[in-house]
Design a protein around this nucleic acid. Structure first.
Lengths: 237, 237
DNA sequence: CGCTGGTTTGACATATGTCAACAGCCGTGG
DNA sequence: CCACGGCTGTTGACATATGTCAAACCAGCG
């Protein structure tokens, strides 16, 4: 197969420079912390980019000149694990940031790739630092992002990396990418579920197939729709 | 047995108010970010406390009036996992902080308990907020702490919650509590190792015993001493 | 000297990983 | 338009790592 043609569908597109004052993320966006002057009139060197599915924003070890704000889509943040496999350590959705370690000057610590087509704002570190001034302001927004990242990491440890495999799969459905009310979530590839649950891909597949047979789960149009009440008792095992 | 007597060995002691300007942690300490006035002369309501082994600083869900700076010792940070067990999500050593989520106003998100006798500074949130002023300064120190917490969480995911059980145990020895040069680390109880590796206590015990029989590991005086070079190949599995 | 709590070891059932075959879907190219 | 090839998901068979239950062991401490 011609990989070039396939790649064309997955290109990165430049959508122009961002108008942070009209950001769809509104008060949630970190760009609100940038200096007024930049946000309002003068063009800031903040680019909006769309990525197709399965594209890398950056890789573990790369020099880190940018911080990324996710506007829409879904990303996975991975690291090389102790046993040589690639482990998913976090998911990123609208409103979250990737590559904040760039502010510390070091290289990126994770590989970040899109799972679905994704829209991001790419912010040069210099801009963010300048915006924050000398004593970089820990705005409530930034602080919330921090807590959120830690919560997400903790959740992957206690919900998705603990206990027997069927429980992990069920907890993924219930807690990882769906809101407490939303009884559906993006249907990841079995490969990705394996990488976040640390369970063999075949085992994940069997569990999912079982749940479908039990009528607790449907997979429609790239999304899982499930029976939350029915799944809950299975999550505790 | 009289639990009271046993408990007496585990009491919390008040060592007086902290003199942050003479903090043993020096430039590493977050207290350096407090306003000069407080740090230098006037007594700040920051208490130094010693905790015996196996004491709780606070519990998941508690109201959160304090942030804790670890001066010496070793703590475990745990959460209730999806399958009902208690999972260790991080370790805390000198220079790290516990309960920073108190700054956000919510309750504590973890239970934090000492593993060995531990010395902490207990900082009321109000003091820290006042010290930081309105736009709380994200000092390089605080930023480093943030990155450090995330790194630690990521490490537990990719090194200690991935792959077969012997590999996890070995990686724990090599990476969790020992520096890259230090070929020794605190000998945790098998119970605690089980809670961080998500592996049955008996399985951990077997692996440790095996390593000892192979001459790769000794347990002396509450510490593990190991042969790093000999262990390294086992870490990759 | 006899508890007590932690560790080690044994025996056993089973969950899980591995290897391999097969099915379904989609895009490609004839 | 259809046939082919390549992915992804599903299923099967099987070896084995791991959890569970239970007993023996050991050290510290009263």
């Amino acid at each position: 197969m011609d990989t070039v043609i396939k790649a064309r569908k997955r290109l990165v597109d430049w959508l122009g420079q961002a108008d942070c004052s009209a950001c769809a993320l509104g008060g949630e966006a970190v760009c609100q912390d940038l200096p007024r002057a930049r946000r309002d009139g003068a063009p800031a060197p903040i680019d909006q980019l769309t990525y197709g599915a399965h594209m890398a924003l950056y890789s573990e070890g790369d020099a880190a000149p940018y911080v990324f704000a996710v506007r829409d889509g879904l990303l996975k943040m991975t690291q090389l694990a102790g046993n040589g496999t690639r482990r998913i350590v976090r998911f990123l959705q609208a409103g979250q940031m990737a590559g904040l370690e760039a502010l510390g000057g070091g290289p990126y610590r994770h590989t970040v790739e899109t799972i679905r087509p994704t829209l991001v704002c790419r912010i040069p570190v210099a801009v963010l630092k300048e915006g924050a001034g000398n004593g970089m302001a820990l705005s409530p927004r930034l602080f919330q992002l921090w807590l959120r990242s830690l919560d997400d990491a903790d959740k992957i440890i206690r919900q998705l990396s603990t206990g027997a495999s069927p429980g992990r799969v069920v907890r993924f459905l219930l807690y990882a990418l769906s809101g407490p009310d939303d009884d559906s979530c993006v249907a990841l590839s079995r490969e990705d579920m394996s990488a976040v649950l640390s369970v063999a891909m075949e085992t994940v597949s069997r569990t999912i197939a079982d749940l479908k047979r039990q009528g607790l789960l449907r997979e429609v149009n790239g999304r899982f729709h499930f029976n939350r009440a029915g799944l809950l008792p299975l999550a505790a095992e």
